[in-house]
Design a protein around this nucleic acid. Sequence first.
RNA 1: GCCCCUGUGGCGGAACUGGUAGACGCGGCAGACUCAAAAUCUGUUGUUCGCAAGGACGUGCUGGUUCGAUUCCGGCCAGGGGCACCA
Length: 865
Amino acid sequence: MSPDISEIAAYDFASAEAKWQNFWLKNRSFSTDCTSSNPKYYVLEMFMYPSGKVHIGHVRNYTIGDIFARFKRARGFKVLHPVGWDAFGLPAENAALKQNYHPKDWTYKNIAVMKSQILSLGFSYDWEREFATCDEKYYAFQQKIFLAFYKNGLVYRKKSEVNWDPVDNCVLANEQVVDGRGWRSGAVVEKRSVEQWFLKITDFADELLTELDKLEGWPEKVKTMQRNWIGKSEGCSIVFKNSAEESVTVFSTRPETIFGATFLAISPDHELAKKLALNNEEIKLFVEEFRKGSVAREFLDKQEKLGIDTGIVMDHPLLGKKLPVYIANFVLMDYGTGAIFATPAHDERDYEFAMKYGLPVERVIQAKHGFSSDLPFLDDGVLANSDFLNGLGVIEARKIVIDKLVQMKIGKRETFFKLRDWGVSRQRYWGCPIPVAHCPECGIVPLAEKDLPVLLPSDVDFSNSGNPLDSHPTWKHIKCPVCGASAVRETDTLDTFVDSSWYFLRFCLNNSNSDDLLSHEDIDYWMQVDQYIGGVEHAILHLLYARFFTKALADCGFVSVREPFKNLFTQGMVCNATYSRGNGEWLFPEEVRKNKDGDFEVIATGEKAIVGRFEKMSKSKKNVVDPDVIIKKHGADALRIFVISDTPPDKDFPWSDDGLEGCGRFVNRVWRLFLFLESKGVCAKLCSEELKVESLSVSVMELYAGFQRIIKNVTDAIENRHMNKVVAYIRDSVNSIYLLLDEVENNRTIFSVIIRDLIKMLAPIAPHICEEAWERLGFSKLASENSWPTYDENYLKVSVVSLPIQVNGKLRGTIEIDPEEEEDAVFEKALRLDGVRNAVAQGTLQKKIFIRGRIVNFVIANAEK
RNA sequence: GCCCCUGUGGCGGAACUGGUAGACGCGGCAGACUCAAAAUCUGUUGUUCGCAAGGACGUGCUGGUUCGAUUCCGGCCAGGGGCACCA
């Protein structure tokens, strides 16, 4: 006697999940297969910073990745799906300071905690390739890379401005500057010029830009952001001279407007400005004032345009007239040449400045009907008042004027980029030491291969101010590798973005014991990353650096690949409601409840709680939920289903406890279905029996046909990354099966086939319950080792379709017909419907539209209004 | 300011190349089971008029193209994101 489906006990997710997680680990179920001849597929989620606990955002990111990995395995790919830790960085040092932990201990302790959390979610990782960027072996190899870059001219030193804490005597990261003050000392932060290490990412500006067009698997949005960031502009540099043998080189992307130039402007940081400041009190004041103001970048952006006349004049190279030279705060030194010629009539900034200082405006571009009275005029037009350019279009004029200036030997076609070289020096302990020596005799000397690796000392004191490596009593003192004189080590460490710029290449290493972390052969074997998944917040920096690194490593001979990520998917953030007290203090969601009036109140005190908007989950706003708690209460499968259901994965995900509970219910509903079918004799064995479709009842036949459609829909949806639809389709199919439970007894074979394919489809999303059911129903191997279900095309064709009948575009009824039925017969049937006939009778029939299998539309005139 | 994206029930969201708007889920309502509740199963749920049959309205607003528009085109509004004096 089989049980009623409602009497089946709830699914014991806790023991099943533990069982399968142990099984997978013990059997190395997801170790990378590097031997088969199947096509390869490399799935990678952006690796994690070991901050202490996994948060829901990670869960969503890794669930999406895991579904891909499992799906691709089922579709016959050999999949590389590795996991690791982005483990260097500032928080470890903060923890060292606050909690008296060594950064290393803190980091590895966090990794252990987070690893156990990740394991409890059942992701199909190859743990044999796991590493942390703070592992000695990893950062030691990174030093080799640094030296290779050095050798290839991709590394250099230059002075650069940093946030300097004058009390702690150290450099601060931007995040450590709070309201213009150092976070620890509270001292007002200064801008200081310090010698720093740079990587020449600008060497690759053009390639980074042009290759973007070929990245078809990247979101357009990310590509646009990178394009803007690289910021290429093509134009012409022009030398202006005067009789005093002085000269200024300006850059313009619109050299065709040169006849409208009425003054020159240079940056307060320009050499000429600095020179003039030496002898002119007024200019000195202006330049100094500017420097003060420039400390806060945001302030600068909103600043009023200010300038000062230098008294110097330059000759206009084509007109011979004299142009005054101004120092102007809106001219940036670090773009172009730090100087411009100003054409107020056709440039907003120039216009604003000219108005303020009463400078002349000369119009040189005409709209269709003469000069526009609206100034500045920025639209396209035809050149005027411009000598040999008159009558030409802008593009043509540009070409001709540049040719002319080049011919006069005062102009040069040039391209400038917004992209700056990458400053990688960090004056702190918990990072990869830069393998360089400073010798009083030889200057800067890269360490020799034999002096590597430079390991971090473990006995460090964080109570001193400044970089602990710098204040370490012995660590930095060495002999110069060239002359043997007493020298010191570089005490800067590398930006952690360097660590994350090549980790995806390290994962390719098939022999984890190898010392050559960039095995050319293995990288050729696995790269590119076929599917990279992560947050859009890395759209620029990480993704640009990783692209640059890959190209630089290729130039240094380490790899052949030049673009690391074939397909990129950026998932949305997980958001949750926010609650606060009247005084603005944030509250945890569990601290509030809805009272009987529907308002929210603080449970402890009963005071009214303010409901804020949905915002990204963050500790500071206290709108976080703990994955551990959820897994304990609802299980990993329910959580995995929840984070991908309802919302498309690239959109922000609104957390809801009710939604999560619904997923828990669904898991149970599926479980009861499995057990019910089992009790009715549905099992693996029956799947091999021949299907006798003809003998099926209409409803079971329809279920089977509908299920073929579900398989197609689920397959397409996963391929297209519409995970929310995958869940919807699977739920739909479960619902349909529930409605036919009475039929199971007489149709065991077909239900065996259906349930087999259902488990296969659900397995990438909810692997634990699927393995458990798979085993109970007597299937061999693992559900995750089985092939993806196929569908029978024949059942996708329907024999009856419900055809909508419209009159003047309005639905008046539907008829059930064979989709292949002929036009006239369909019209006739349609007109048998009262609603249709009556509507048509309201006027005279003008036209009949018939789209086979889609729609019928009667168009009538004089329809009643 | 410039660039990009988004706008569909009470909510998250579906809708093939223009062809029955609202799949699936959440929430709500009702029924079954139960002494009762929970759980479960089933039904129902855009708004509105109507006892009903059946109508009217409805995809941010507004024009247009079309037999037919959530879908294509123009203008506007709102929200989100990126860049921000880049010559």
